[in-house]
């Protein structure tokens, strides 16, 4: 069976809520039923076949072609299966996803992997602000799974993150790891200001020395036993993180944020 493919016919002016087009919703539907589903587009509802040409039949493997930055909620609460996005994605990519895999060849907008629970999200381009974060007012962001961003990420990556791992090959904006409860964020590039702001627990693993807030204390240089295991877990990724030459176990450890619980850590490669 070939992948169930949605090819965008034209770019609508208003944003599109793509949340109905996930594997577990479509698995028992025939193509005419899928075509008849409606998607919220601004204040209107559009049939799927008004926006997309549909081909293929395997709903466990969905491909969205010609995607652009106004297609929101792609892979919302995904439960198994895979979604491949060719192009950019709008806001809330992989929102609350529970399992499965999403891969996107372009950039993702705000709140990608927001409140993600498990699974794997790979963004080949850049991600916007609040990657893996909680919705405003909520206390728990990403609770599990893994995110790989090959480009850069915006501000507040991992805000209120609870568990799981975010891997960023490029740079991270201001407030990276803010208000983290736990989990791991690894950044190969540069980080912005206020890194780890108000983090309670969790690990920020950085390749480059950040501009540290005053509320982080230096705990010295250390060789940490868990780092080889962490790097070994990246081996199967299609990423620079999988390159053995990227691995290290010698780090400078900073503890903080002392203005909060202070059990978090920023580990900087030595």
């Amino acid at each position: 069976m070939s992948a169930l493919t949605f090819t965008l016919k034209h770019r609508p002016d208003q944003r599109v809520d793509m949340s109905p087009l996930v594997c577990h919703h479509l698995k028992d539907l025939a193509l005419p039923d899928i075509a008849a589903l409606t998607l919220q587009n601004g204040k209107r509802k559009l049939r799927v076949d008004e926006l997309f040409t549909i081909s293929g039949s395997n709903a466990q493997t969905i491909v969205i072609k010609n995607s652009f930055a106004k297609l929101d909620f792609i892979g919302k609460e995904l439960q198994g299966g895979s979604i491949t996005v060719e192009g950019d994605a709008g806001a809330y990519l992989g929102f609350g996803m529970k399992s499965g895999e999403i891969k996107i060849s372009g950039n993702a907008g705000l709140y990608a992997a927001c409140e993600m629970k498990n699974g794997y999200l790979e963004i080949a381009g850049n991600a916007g602000d609040f990657l893996g974060a909680a919705l405003p007012g909520n206390k728990m962001g990403m609770k599990g799974g893994a995110i790989l961003v090959k480009g850069c990420v915006g501000e507040r990556a991992g805000d209120h993150m609870r568990r799981g791992i975010i891997l960023i090959e490029g740079n991270a904006g201001n407030y990276c790891g803010s208000r983290m409860t736990a989990g791991t964020i690894a950044v190969m590039g540069q980080t912005g200001r206020y890194v780890g702001y108000a983090m309670r627990r969790g690990t920020l693993l950085l390749w480059n020395q950040p501009r540290l807030p005053a509320s982080f204390n230096d705990c010295g240089a250390h060789t940490l036993a868990f780092l080889p295991i962490l790097f070994a877990s990246f081996n199967k990724l299609n990423s620079r993180f999988a390159n053995g030459a990227s691995a290290f176990n010698r780090v400078q450890r900073y503890a903080g944020d002392m203005s909060e619980m202070g059990r978090g850590e920023i580990l900087v490669k030595l």
Binding site: G144, T184, R201, T203, L224, A225, F226, L230, S233, R263
Partner: peptide
């Protein structure tokens, strides 16, 4: 004594 750190790596939980 409260300074321990959990890490879940590839589905396995480790304690530091």
């Amino acid at each position: 004594d409260g300074f321990q750190i959990a890490k879940v790596i590839s589905g396995k939980r480790y304690w530091r």
